[in-house]
Design a protein around this nucleic acid. Structure first.
Length: 497
RNA sequence: GGUCAUGUGGCCGAGCGGUAAGGCAUGGGUCUGCAAAACCUUUUACGGCGGUUCGAAUCCGCCCGUGACCUCCA
C-alpha cells in the first residue's frame, strides 16, 4: 500500500508524512473567533480537518487534535481603532463579553455536531491561556525580538527577518511588504510597519482586559495559537492547519513567535484549505455575502432557493479537493443532494446483501474490478486526502450494487469475500472516514407503526383495485410531506421529507 | 501596484506528459392501474496564440478572463 503524502504549504510540495513520534500525530487547527454566528466558511476547514483527523485514526494513529476557540477579540483594524471586536459587539447587544462568547461557542458546537465532525481532543480558549501568552511574550522580549511602547508590546519583524526566513510560508519578502503595506493611522508606536502586536494596551472603554507586566491590556491576535499549540503539542509538532487566508499574516507570525520562543519551527507540515466562494466571489464580511450555517440548513437567505441538510453540505464539500476553491450555488447543491441520496440508498442496499458462494454467475472480471476500485480508495486518500476521487469510485460501484440488489446480476457475481470487502469498505469510508450519516433515520416509534398500518391498508386497496382509496392514502400523506414508494417487489416504503 | 493561484461539456467538479473520473441536468428506455421514485443507457468539454516533446488539459512563453493574499476573515 502506498504511504500517506501531504501537500505542505511551507515547502509547496507533496511530502511523505512521517510523524515525529511513531504512531502519534499532533495536529493544531486554528479555530473560530466566536464573536458571531458560524457561517458557511467555517464548514470547510473544520470538515476538511475532520476528514484528516478521521483518516489518521483509520490508519491507526493516536491523534491529539487541538482546535482553539478565539474568545478574546482581535483588532478590527490594526492601528486604527484597535478595538476589541468582541467587546464592541457585546456592548451593542448589551451582554457581558463572556456571555456573548458562550452563546456563539455553543452555536458553533451545535453546527459542528450537525455537520458530524468529531470533537477535537482539546479545545483551548484564548481567555483561558492569558498567563501562557504573557509568559511567551516575556520570553520573546528577553530574547530581544520584541519591544514595549506605552504598555503595548510589538514583535520586531525586521530583526527577525535578518536571522530567519520570514515570509517563506506565505511567499513574500519584507521589501515587498514595506512597499505594499497600507499606511494606517497610529502606526507611530511601531518601529516598523510590519511589526505586529503581541500585547495591546487597553483603552479605558475596553471591556476585555487583563493585568500584565506592561499594564492592563489584551493579547495580540497571533500569540494565542503559539502559546496553546506549544503547551499541548510541544515546541515542534506534526501538523498545523487552517484556512488559506490565515497564511499571512497569522501563520507567518506564529512561526516567528514560536521560533524565537521555542527555538523551533512549530509545525512540520502546514495544511491550508482553500476558500468557499459564492457566485465566484469569496465569502466574507466585507463582501456582504456571508451565509450563516443556520440559514444554510433552513434556506432562509436571499441567495438560497431552499435549505440544505448538513450532510448535503458535507458531501458537497467532499466532492472537491480541499485545496481548490469551491463555488456554492443552488444547482450544485441540489446536485449534491441527489447524488448523496443515491449513494446512500446503494449503501443501504449493500448492507442487506448476503454473501453467497455458489459457482453460478460468478464474474471474475467484475470481481477483480471491484477489488481494484476498493483498494484505490486508500491510494486516493494517501494522495493528499483526495476525497473527490474516493467519491467517484464509490459512485462507480453503485450500479454494480444496484444490479445485484435488483437481481439483474446473480448474487454470486462477486466472491463472498469480495462482497464482504465491499461492505466493509463502504462502511469504513462512508461513515468513518468521510463521516457521512443517515439523516433520514426512520422514527422507530409510533409514527412508524401508524405508517405501516396505512401502507397495509393501501396495499389491500390496491389488491382490490380500489385505486380511489389507495390514491387517497398516498396523496394525503404526500401533502403531509411523507412520500410512499411502490417498489418493484410489491412492497411499499416511505420517506419523510 | 506587489505576490500567488486559476480558466475542463448545460451546471458542479477530478485530472500533475500517454488516447478526458464522478455527480447533477438533458435525451432514450425498463418498471408501473396511474404517479412518483428507482434502475439502465446517453450526445457536444480542456480560454486564445505560439513553443518543448514521439506524444500536452497536463511543461514553457505571451495574450485574454476570473479569483485570492497584501486589512478582521475559515
Amino acid at each position: 500500500m502506498s504511504s500517506l503524502k501531504i501537500y505542505n504549504s511551507y515547502t509547496r510540495q507533496k511530502e511523505n508524512f512521517e510523524p515525529i513520534t511513531p504512531g502519534h500525530v499532533g495536529m493544531y487547527v486554528c479555530g473560530p473567533t466566536v464573536s458571531g454566528e458560524s457561517h458557511l466558511g467555517h464548514a470547510r476547514p473544520y470538515i476538511t480537518f475532520d476528514i484528516i483527523y478521521r483518516y489518521f485514526l483509520h490508519l491507526g494513529y493516536k491523534v491529539r487534535y487541538v482546535r482553539n476557540i478565539t474568545d478574546a477579540g482581535h483588532f478590527e483594524e490594526e492601528g486604527r481603532e484597535a478595538e476589541d471586536k468582541i467587546a464592541d459587539k457585546a456592548k451593542l447587544e448589551k451582554l457581558e463579553p463572556m456571555e456573548l462568547v458562550q452563546k456563539y461557542t455553543n452555536l458553533f458546537h451545535w453546527a459542528m455536531q450537525q455537520l458530524n465532525t468529531l470533537e477535537p481532543s482539546i479545545e483551548p480558549t484564548a481567555t483561558g491561556h492569558i498567563v501562557e501568552q504573557i509568559d511567551m511574550i516575556r520570553e520573546i522580549i528577553k530574547e530581544g525580538y520584541a519591544y514595549e511602547v506605552n504598555g503595548s508590546v510589538y514583535f520586531d519583524v525586521k530583526k527577525y527577518a535578518a536571522h530567519y526566513p520570514y515570509g517563506k510560508l506565505s511567499g513574500r519578502n519584507l521589501d515587498d511588504l514595506l512597499e505594499t503595506t497600507r499606511s494606517l493611522e497610529g502606526q507611530d508606536e511601531k518601529r516598523n510597519k510590519q511589526d505586529f502586536a503581541l500585547w495591546k494596551s487597553a483603552p479605558p472603554q475596553h471591556i476585555m482586559r487583563w493585568n500584565s507586566p506592561w499594564g492592563e491590556g489584551f493579547p495580540g491576535w497571533h500569540i494565542e495559537c503559539s502559546a496553546m499549540s506549544s503547551k499541548y503539542l510541544g515546541a515542534e509538532f506534526d501538523i498545523h492547519g487552517g484556512g488559506m487566508d490565515l497564511q499571512f499574516p497569522h501563520h507567518e507570525s506564529e512561526i516567528a513567535q514560536s521560533t524565537i520562543c521555542n527555538k523551533h519551527m512549530p509545525a512540520r507540515y502546514w495544511i491550508h484549505n482553500n476558500m468557499i466562494t459564492i457566485n465566484g466571489r469569496k465569502m466574507g464580511k466585507s463582501y456582504n455575502n456571508q451565509i450563516k450555517l443556520t440559514e444554510m440548513f433552513n434556506g432562509e437567505h436571499p441567495l438560497l432557493e431552499k435549505g440544505y441538510s448538513p450532510m448535503t453540505i458535507r458531501f458537497f464539500i467532499l466532492q472537491t479537493h480541499y485545496r481548490s476553491t469551491l463555488d456554492f450555488g443552488n444547482d450544485a447543491l441540489q446536485a449534491a443532494e441527489k447524488g448523496l441520496k443515491r449513494l446512500w440508498e446503494a449503501y443501504e442496499a449493500l448492507k442487506k446483501l448476503s454473501p453467497s458462494s455458489g459457482p453460478e454467475g460468478f464474474d471474475q472480471q467484475l470481481d477483480e474490478k471491484v477489488v481494484k476500485m476498493l483498494l484505490q480508495l486508500d491510494e486516493f486518500m494517501n494522495d493528499d486526502f483526495n476525497t473527490a476521487k474516493v467519491l467517484a469510485n464509490l459512485f462507480e460501484l453503485v450500479p454494480i450494487i444496484n444490479a445485484i440488489r435488483d437481481k439483474r446480476l446473480s448474487p454470486n457475481t462477486l466472491k463472498a469475500t469480495t462482497l464482504e470487502m465491499l461492505q466493509r469498505y463502504f462502511h469504513e469510508y462512508i461513515e468513518n472516514i468521510l463521516g457521512l450519516r443517515d439523516e433520514n433515520a426512520k422514527d422507530e416509534g409510533k409514527l412508524d407503526g401508524v405508517l405501516s398500518l396505512l401502507i397495509e391498508l393501501r396495499k389491500e386497496a390496491r389488491a382490490k383495485k380500489d385505486y380511489a382509496t389507495s390514491d387517497k392514502i398516498r396523496n394525503q400523506l404526500q401533502a403531509l410531506g411523507i412520500s410512499l414508494k411502490d417498489d418493484k417487489d410489491g412492497n411499499i416504503s416511505y420517506s419523510i421529507n
